[in-house]
């Protein structure tokens, strides 16, 4: 559906300003700044993934129309990819920060790929695929839990 792709590419470019602005692009000089950035990123990705998860479950229970669920999941996927992009653009100042980033990278990538699989399954009305993607989200979400408190 080329209409969808064009539309999504335009919308992906306009990620919610509030999210982007919260992670100021300026390189973070200190470790505590980087920790704060890690915390907000973990919290934002966890929240977005949780909404996608709930939407997929609601869809499989027949509470959401296909179009609505797909909009929700696609928006979640775009938000997560842009948050990751913003986070990756931050230069970790110290070795500990690099290690911290390493801890965060794996769950972030897992969530991003799970969301993509979820969106694909949803579009193909593949109930099993959706259930698998939702299950795939559970594990990285739990690892994100403690990362939301790092440095507090």
């Amino acid at each position: 559906m080329s209409l969808r792709v064009i539309g999504r590419r335009i919308v992906a470019g306009a990620v919610p300003l509030a999210l982007l602005v919260s992670g100021c692009a300026s390189p973070s000089p200190t470790m505590s700044d980087f920790q704060t950035k890690t915390r907000t990123t973990a919290r934002a990705v966890a929240g977005t993934a949780a909404v996608a998860q709930v939407s997929a479950q609601a869809w499989s229970r027949g509470q959401l129309t296909d179009a609505y669920a797909d909009t929700l999941v696609t928006e979640a996927e775009d938000d997560v990819s842009s948050i990751i992009q913003t986070y990756d653009s931050r230069q970790p100042p110290t070795a500990a920060a690099v290690a911290l980033k390493g801890r965060l990278d794996k769950p972030l990538q897992d969530i991003s790929s799970a969301l993509t699989d979820l969106r694909i399954a949803l579009r193909r009305n593949d109930r099993r695929g959706v259930a698998q993607a939702v299950a795939a989200l559970r594990q990285p979400l739990t690892t994100l839990g403690p990362l939301q408190q790092v440095g507090l």
Binding site: A46, A50, L64, T65, L72, E75, D79
Partner: peptide, 25 residues
């Protein structure tokens, strides 16, 4: 409880779907 920062109208309507399904939606 999900820790979501609402950024889209679709998220505002989600609770209604969870409560009343497609009719509410």
């Amino acid at each position: 409880p999900l820790g979501t920062d609402v950024g889209h109208l679709s998220q505002v309507g989600l609770p209604v779907a969870l409560a009343l399904g497609k009719v509410g939606l």
